[in-house]
Computed example of a mutant assay.
Amino acid sequence: MTRRRRPLSPEERELWTRVAASARPMRTTPAKSAEAEANPPPKKPHPAPSSFHIGQSARSLTAPHDLVPASEDRLAAQPLRMNRRTHQQMQRGKLKPEGRIDLHGMTVAEAHPELVRFLMNAQSAGKRMVLVITGKGKGKVKDDHGPIPQRIGVLRHQLPHWLGQPPLSNVVLQVAPAHLKHGGGGAFYIYLRRA
């Protein structure tokens, strides 16, 4: 059984026209027509890669395994424990070292006790800044890129470790790479605490 629709009265029609005029559409974009849905625009094909090689973005296997940062990086990262003006003068090579020790040609076993003896005697003598020359290492040996790399300049890389351990950690106030006129990358300024 189908129901017949009754016709709207003039009052209902007038009410409906007022409601329809005050209504705002929910969708601001026009609805897609049935024709547009039936015929979607063609998709653009992906461009083929010009020259792709498997592993092209992988890192080289010959890259060094830097497990420990360089001594210059470690020294630059340490906090400043001395007067800023004196530290700047020291880095610019304007302060004259009051003593120096040259560790060239020594092994690690020979150099460590010599360094401890020298720094302890320098502090007891009232010296404030000394120069420790470690050298840059032999030029014949190249950096080893193996699983356990050996660095050039073993003494240069060991010096910050030695200075951070007792008894030298109580003696040393600040360490900085030396200026070029005092040896550059193969030497270090060591500023000592007062005795």
Rank of each mutant, 00 (worst) to 15 (best):
E114Y: 02
A125T: 12
L103C: 06
A122S: 14
K127M: 11
M106K: 15
T107N: 02
P113N: 03
A109S: 15
A125N: 10
K127Q: 09
T107F: 07
M106Y: 13
R128V: 07
A111E: 04
P113A: 10
S124N: 12
K127E: 05
R100V: 08
H104K: 06
A125Y: 04
M120A: 12
H104F: 06
L119C: 07
R100Y: 10
L103I: 09
P113T: 09
R100K: 14
D102A: 03
F118Y: 08
H112N: 14
H104C: 03
G99D: 09
T107D: 09
E110R: 12
G105R: 04
F118H: 10
V108A: 12
V108N: 11
F118T: 00
A122G: 12
G126F: 01
P113Q: 06
L115V: 11
R117S: 12
E110P: 07
Q123P: 10
M106H: 15
R117Y: 07
R128M: 02
L119D: 05
R100G: 11
G126Q: 01
A109I: 13
M106A: 12
G126C: 02
V116D: 03
R117Q: 10
H112R: 15
N121R: 15
N121A: 15
L119Q: 04
V116E: 10
I101E: 02
A122D: 11
A125Q: 12
H104L: 05
E110W: 00
A125C: 06
P113C: 01
A125K: 08
T107M: 06
H104I: 04
Q123W: 01
S124L: 12
H112E: 15
V108I: 15
N121H: 14
A125G: 06
S124D: 11
R117K: 13
A122T: 11
G126V: 01
T107Y: 06
P113M: 00
M120C: 10
E110K: 13
M106V: 01
G99S: 02
V108S: 14
E110H: 09
D102C: 11
R128C: 02
Q123T: 12
P113D: 04
M120T: 15
A109T: 15
R117L: 09
A122L: 07
R117H: 13
N121C: 07
M120P: 00
F118D: 04
M120S: 14
H104M: 00
G99Y: 03
A122H: 08
F118E: 03
A111K: 07
M120D: 13
G126H: 01
G126R: 00
H112D: 09
V116A: 04
H112C: 11
I101D: 09
A109P: 00
M106C: 13
L103D: 03
A125R: 10
L119F: 11
L103P: 06
E114P: 05
G126E: 00
V108P: 03
L103Q: 03
M120F: 05
R117C: 10
G126D: 01
L115N: 04
A125M: 05
A122R: 04
V108L: 15
I101Y: 08
H104R: 11
A125W: 02
H104T: 03
S124K: 14
V108H: 11
A122F: 05
R117M: 10
R100S: 14
A109C: 06
G105A: 09
V108F: 13
M120L: 15
V116N: 05
P113E: 03
